[in-house]
Every structure is written in structure tokens, then in C-alpha cells.
Amino acid sequence: MSDDAVSPEEVRHVAGLARVDLDDDEVDRFARQFADILEYFETLDEVPEVDREADLTNVMRPDEERDSLDREAALENASKAEDGYFKGPNVS
């Protein structure tokens, strides 16, 4: 299975996409576990193509104004706020 093994670099790449920092121990441990789990997921190859009959209807509500959270309540759980807005870190 060495071809399919997950490298620490791949784990770091995916962690970067998901915006989750990992320390070196976590990277090594996840690389080992992901190899096992992904090998198991490979058995999906045996699944035939299946027609999916989706019996769905869109549900729309009238486009009318209605009450929503007031600003103060919406900001209550924010770590930082300024002038009635959420305050995030610098974009770059």
C-alpha cells in the first residue's frame, strides 16, 4: 500500500486548505490514521453507478421583511466589535 500512503506533506496541505494549524506530532499521527481510513474508503470503487431519483420540490417563503436579531444581540458573542460591526484580523 506504500503508493497510497498519505504523506505528511499532504496532511499539511489539506490542513492549510481547512485553515487548521497542526503540530508535527499531529501531522505524523494523522498521516498514519488517514492511510488506514482512506484505504478503507477505497472500497467505494466497488459501488455501481446508481440512478438517483430525487423527488424534491423547492420550498420558498414570501419575500417579505421580518424581524431578525438586533445588532446588539448579534454582536454579543464576538471577541471584538467596533462601531456596531464585527472586528476581524487583518486580511493580509
Binding site: 490542513a15 492549510g16 481547512a18 485553515r19 487548521v20 494549524d21 497542526l22 448579534a74 458573542n77 464576538a78 471577541s79 471584538k80 464585527f86 472586528k87 476581524g88 484580523p89 487583518n90 486580511v91 493580509s92
Partner: peptide
């Protein structure tokens, strides 16, 4: 960590701060 939840005390830009918060 911006609108609710744990927020890391981290230096850096948007992506770096989010990644620390989530770690």
C-alpha cells in the same frame, strides 16, 4: 473566532489567525 466562539490570541493575517483559533 470572529463572530462567536474561541478566538486565539494570535498575531498575523486573517488566515493565520483562523488556523490558530481552529487548532
Amino acid at each position: 473566532g470572529v463572530r462567536y466562539g474561541h478566538s486565539a490570541d494570535a498575531e498575523g493575517n486573517w488566515n493565520e489567525t483562523f488556523a490558530r483559533t481552529r487548532e
